[in-house]
């Protein structure tokens, strides 16, 4: 039993590619966070090849839902230093290689 498990495990870890949305940092209220996360998932799935379009969609939806002005960054590699209105920041990963930052200022 123990040996069998041991053999299987390393293979498993290699295979797994995590694609679920992972919230890295957020100070949004729980409800808003969930809504935003769902929005991000929808947008990134819809525009899987076009980050700009995804970012635009997220921004516009966020503006509509929670009031402007929101800023959105979608990308695979970037650095940022932002100042944001408290309770309006979401920094999350999605799809295994995308990072999404949403903030209001």
């Amino acid at each position: 039993m123990g040996d069998g498990e041991g053999r299987e495990k390393p293979e498993e870890t290699k295979k797994i590619v995590h694609t679920y949305p992972l919230i890295r940092h957020s100070d949004m209220p729980e409800e808003m966070k969930q809504e935003s996360m769902e929005l991000v998932v929808t947008a990134c799935e819809k525009h899987s090849t076009n980050n700009e379009a995804a970012a635009r969609m997220i921004k516009e939806e966020m503006d509509k839902k929670f009031g402007p002005p929101f800023h959105v960054v979608v990308g695979e590699g970037f650095g940022f230093e932002i100042s944001f209105e408290c309770q309006n920041l979401l920094y999350m990963f999605f799809g295994g290689n995308l990072a999404i930052v949403i903030w209001k200022c």
């Binding site: 992972l22 970037f78 650095g79 932002i82 100042s83 408290c86 990963f93 990072a99």
Partner: peptide, 17 residues
């Protein structure tokens, strides 16, 4: 207001996952 900064790199995303 608050400030927040981070770097997005593929390995950071991978590690986080």
């Amino acid at each position: 207001m608050g400030t927040f900064s981070a770097n997005v790199l593929q390995w950071i995303i991978y590690d986080a996952y």
